[in-house]
Each structure stands twice: as C-alpha cells, then as structure tokens.
C-alpha cells in the first residue's frame, strides 16, 4: 500500500513550484529518510537538491527526525534553514 503526501514549500523552496507544494508517493509506514529520497526525486534543479540537504521536514507541531515515521494525515512541510528577525 502506498499513499500520496503533499509537502508544503516555504522560503527558497517556493521558487520551485508555483503551487508551493509538491506531492510524493510513499509506502504506508515510510520514515522521513524515505520521504527525503522521494522528495529529492521530484526536484529537477541542482540548487534545490543542495538546499534539501540542509532542510528539515515538519508537521504543524514539530520538526521530524530522519528516523521518524511520516505521520498519516498530518500536514507536512519542508523547512529550509531559518533566519527570522
């Protein structure tokens, strides 16, 4: 069984999709490392793939670790390096 997960884009990632989101197909129990590989396959730009290496995946509640399971039904975002203020 696989599922479709939509990843919301923020910051510098926004320039790579006019919809500010990229959908990937994942196995039901996929972890974040699997999500990262699936997301990388969707990127055509070398700069985007480089940015992905220093970016984190998160739900609305918390940043996810590489070994965490991608939660079913949660909104997932990709967060490039941050710089508020």
């Amino acid at each position: 069984m696989s599922r479709e997960v939509e990843i919301k884009l923020f910051g510098a990632f926004r320039q790579y999709s006019p919809e500010a989101a990229i959908a990937v197909s994942l196995p039901e129990s996929a972890d974040v490392a699997t999500l990262r590989r699936a997301f990388a396959d969707k990127l055509e730009d070398d700069n985007a793939r480089a940015l992905l290496q220093s970016s984190a995946f998160a739900t609305d509640e918390a940043v996810l670790g590489e070994g965490d399971t991608v939660p079913a039904g949660a909104r997932i975002s990709i967060l490039p390096p941050v710089c508020g203020g």
């Binding site: 510098a12 984190a56 995946f57 941050v82």
Partner: peptide, 10 residues
C-alpha cells in the same frame, strides 16, 4: 533568499 540556520541534523 538569506542563508540561515539549519533545523535538521541528519
């Protein structure tokens, strides 16, 4: 886009 602090540690 300004370079910032990475939130990940993979």
């Amino acid at each position: 886009w300004v370079k910032g602090h990475a939130l990940c540690s993979h």
